[in-house]
């Protein structure tokens, strides 16, 4: 019990990793399929402006302004995509650099919050509060259930948008839904991983799972497993060696990715060898 109270920050961080890592990994399977990596990076960076704005407005915990600002940027991306002839990449680069510049400008005006602000850049497991942990748990369960509830439509949408429309999926609604849940998941995960690295926890588990999976079901399950290993392993290493959380979690994920790459190569080589043997006999 004494250990528990002495290490409460670690328990909170571990619980947050258990909630957020699988959520990011699950979304990552569809983010990579829909070429939305840059989108998640843009909303992550825009969250920085939300954090700065929150501190500047006097919030001691800027989670709500952070989520609202990211959602605003996500809506702006969709709106500009639909109403202008600009390429989506251009729109996102514009909003990413604009919101980072805006955030840094406000940061320069902050008095006394600069250390807390910088914690959002690289993640800080000691900074996870009870409120944030509860928010992460509720959002993870809620978003996870919503994604599984809409899994048929989301899968078809990721395969081909026009086919999804003809099969009766409300494509526009589902696009907004996915963008919304991704934005909220990214914003909430920033506390643990930091703005710079949150996209990594979305992309790397899905990519690692793809190396070894033979079906989409396997890819989802493996991505969840890689996310969990990276999150829990990363937080443990952070605590043991007193190193920053975000980079540790991401490097753990990259380590797992490297292992899956080796497994995939070995399997492919074994497949070729047995193919040659089959032909020879």
């Amino acid at each position: 019990m004494e250990w528990f109270s002495d290490n409460i920050y670690l328990v909170r961080a571990m619980a947050a990793a258990l909630c957020l890592a699988p959520l990011c990994s699950l979304l990552g399977v569809f983010v990579t399929a829909r070429r939305m990596s840059f989108f998640s990076d843009t909303v992550a960076h825009s969250a920085l402006a939300g954090v700065a704005l929150g501190f500047w407005l006097g919030f001691s915990e800027p989670t709500i302004p952070m989520i609202l600002f990211s959602l605003g940027v996500a809506v702006a991306i969709l709106w500009l995509k639909e109403t202008t002839a600009l390429l989506t990449d251009t729109i996102m680069a514009l909003l990413l650099s604009g919101s980072v510049a805006f955030g840094l400008l406000i940061r320069s005006q902050l008095k006394g919050f600069r250390a807390q602000f910088d914690a959002y850049l690289f993640g800080d497991i000691q900074a996870v509060s009870d409120e944030e942990l509860i928010a992460a748990a509720v959002l993870s369960v809620g978003i996870g259930l919503c994604v599984f509830w809409k899994l048929n439509s989301l899968t078809l949408l990721s395969a081909q948008e026009d086919l999804a429309h003809v099969a009766g999926v409300n494509v526009q609604w589902l696009n907004y839904f996915f963008v919304g849940v991704l934005t909220v998941a990214v914003s909430v995960s920033i506390r643990l991983l930091g703005v710079m690295l949150v996209t990594a926890l979305i992309i790397i588990p899905a990519a690692a799972a793809r190396n070894v999976a033979c079906s989409l079901r396997q890819q989802i399950l493996f991505a969840l497993a890689v996310g969990l290993i990276s999150g829990v392993g990363g937080v443990s290493l952070t605590d043991r060696y007193d190193i920053p959380a975000g980079p540790t979690i991401v490097l753990t994920a990259i380590g797992v990715f490297a292992v899956t790459l080796v497994v995939a190569r070995l399997r492919s080589r074994a497949g070729h060898a047995s193919g040659r043997e089959g032909r020879a006999s």
Binding site: V29, T32, A33, R34, R35, N152, T155, L156, S158, A159, Q160, D162, L163, A167, A206, A207, A209, R210, A213, C214, S215, L216, R217, Q218, Q219
Partner: peptide, 20 residues
Amino acid sequence: PQKLSLERSFMITVREFLAL
């Protein structure tokens, strides 16, 4: 449709696709 511009990173199998 004319084509299916599927990302190589999406591991959906023919069975899973048809099940939809």
